[in-house]
Amino acid sequence: MIKDIGPNPHAFDIETATRKNENYRTTVWTGKYLQVTLMSIEPGSSIGLEVHPETDQFLRIDAGTGLCVMGDAEDDLSFEQEVSDGWSIQVPAGKWHDVKNTGDEPLRLYTVYAPVHHAQGIIHETAEDSERDEENGVDVPPEWTVQPEDPAEDQHA
């Protein structure tokens, strides 16, 4: 189990950790400017259509197959790309996006957020846990991270 030690030097085998992660989201490192999380999406499920107005994301698939969609609006997802082991996805801030598991095994990936997007060390076993913690104000970046001065709220479809 990887422990998020905050903005301290850290190194681990991210491919092995990603493949072994069974949680919807596990936060494994939180720096001052960026954050690394591991994700596991069950067959037929997805990350969930969303937009982060002030957060760029980098995702890398380490197991499974999926479909990445992106666009300027939740009803205008003009970018589509099938993805699988070894593929990376770059999500610009302000783009609606989703990654759907189209395979028959869990889709295992890691995500790098810049700036930091989640609470340090937070683990969400399910997408529902993640939504609940976001709604209740539990899943917020630490105060010591650098955030936009007047951040726009994330949106979910």
Rank of each mutant, 00 (worst) to 15 (best):
E15G: 13
M1H: 15
M39G: 07
E80L: 05
G137T: 05
D85Q: 10
H97G: 01
I5T: 15
E143W: 07
E82R: 08
L109Q: 01
P151H: 14
A93Q: 09
E15V: 11
S78C: 04
G137V: 05
D98K: 05
E149G: 10
P92G: 04
P148L: 09
G71Y: 02
P142F: 10
H52C: 08
E42M: 11
E135Q: 15
E105G: 06
S45N: 15
V99P: 00
I47T: 08
M1R: 09
D72W: 03
K100Q: 04
I5K: 13
T16Y: 03
Y24K: 04
T102R: 09
P142R: 08
G64W: 00
V140C: 10
E135M: 13
E128Y: 07
I122N: 01
Y33L: 09
R25K: 15
H10Y: 09
V83I: 13
M39D: 15
T30N: 07
D62L: 05
W87Q: 10
S45H: 14
L34M: 15
E22N: 15
R25G: 00
G48L: 00
T37S: 14
A93Y: 07
A157G: 15
G103D: 06
E134A: 10
D75R: 13
D139E: 06
A152D: 09
G103C: 11
P53Q: 09
A119D: 05
F12D: 10
Y113P: 02
P148K: 09
S88L: 11
L59M: 12
T55P: 01
G64H: 03
S88N: 14
T126K: 11
G6M: 05
P106V: 05
K32W: 03
Y113G: 03
L67R: 00
P151L: 14
G103A: 05
E22R: 15
H156L: 14
W29F: 11
E105H: 13
H117F: 08
P115V: 04
C68S: 12
L49S: 03
A119I: 05
D98V: 03
W96G: 00
P115H: 06
T145M: 06
Q81W: 02
R108Q: 11
H97K: 09
D76K: 13
V83S: 01
L67I: 04
C68H: 08
G6D: 04
D154K: 10
T16P: 03
E134T: 13
D98A: 09
N136C: 11
E131A: 12
R108L: 02
E54C: 15
G44I: 14
S130V: 05
T37G: 06
V83G: 00
S40M: 12
D72V: 08
A119G: 07
G44E: 07
E54D: 15
G94I: 03
D104L: 14
E149K: 10
V69I: 14
L107C: 10
Q147R: 12
D133R: 12
K100C: 01
D4A: 07
D13I: 12
D154T: 14
V112I: 13
N8T: 13
G94Q: 12
G71L: 06
E42H: 07
E149H: 05
I61H: 00
L49N: 04
V99K: 00
Q155I: 07
Q35K: 04
Q57D: 09
P9V: 14
G137I: 07
A114R: 01
T55M: 07
Q120C: 11
T27C: 09
Y110E: 01
D154M: 15
Y33G: 10
